[in-house]
Computed example of a mutant assay.
Amino acid sequence: MRRLLPTAIAATAALMSLSSCYLGPDPVQYAALAVVDGRPTAVVAVCGRPEIGVDVHRDDNTDDNDLRIWSVTVTLPHQVRDVEVELLGAARPGWEITSRDGEIADTGLGAIKVVQLTSFEAGHRYRLDSSKSGPEGTKAPAVSFTTADLTGIGPGQVLAAVDRDDAEVVSRDAFVKDSCG
């Protein structure tokens, strides 16, 4: 009996520590990169949401105090399976460009100036994001790309995130189906 009690206490403690871990679904990346009519375009799996947000930012640490970003919130007029959002495009009905050009953000490590991203330039890396955060602020990996990646995306295809640094070309239909489960 005396040996059984420490074993039972240890087993109970182990189970309690495991139960506090989040075992739910991972965050989902709803955006992938396509080329539509020669322009970089986010294909966003809607998955029943009435509104989507899309962000694309330069991610190569070449501008020490600038965050070059373009953001939009799109309110969908009716239920659709997926939607195309022309990156860096002008506002359209139901679109609100939400980039905060000129804003100064304090990161705790210094100030960063927000600059609206207006073009994709060779030699820079970008990240496309339309994910829904999970518990504890976890995020799905964003689509990492350069202008050179655009030529490898054919009709009916998208560049989708595999992990933080890698992406792969897949069919648009497969991406939307996988995103919405």
Rank of each mutant, 00 (worst) to 15 (best):
P6K: 12
D165R: 00
P50V: 05
V169H: 00
T7M: 01
A148N: 01
V28R: 08
D26G: 13
V46P: 01
N65C: 09
D60F: 07
R68Q: 14
G154P: 04
T151N: 15
A42T: 00
G134V: 07
V162N: 13
Y22K: 14
A13Q: 10
C180N: 00
L159M: 09
H57W: 12
D66T: 03
G38R: 09
P25I: 12
S130A: 04
A31S: 08
E121M: 06
V54F: 06
A167C: 08
P77V: 01
G48H: 05
V80W: 14
R39Q: 15
Q79W: 03
F145Y: 02
S20Q: 15
Y30M: 02
T62V: 14
L159V: 06
A8K: 08
P50L: 13
P141L: 10
C180D: 05
V46M: 01
T12S: 06
D60N: 01
R127W: 09
N65V: 08
G152R: 08
A91M: 00
G181C: 11
D26S: 14
G134I: 01
A160W: 00
T138K: 15
M1N: 15
S99N: 01
W70L: 07
D101R: 08
T75L: 04
V72F: 00
V169A: 02
T146Q: 11
Q29H: 00
L159I: 05
L109N: 10
V56H: 03
E51N: 10
V158I: 06
V74H: 14
G156M: 09
E84I: 05
P141K: 12
V169T: 11
G89V: 09
I153L: 04
D149E: 03
T12C: 14
R125K: 02
A174F: 08
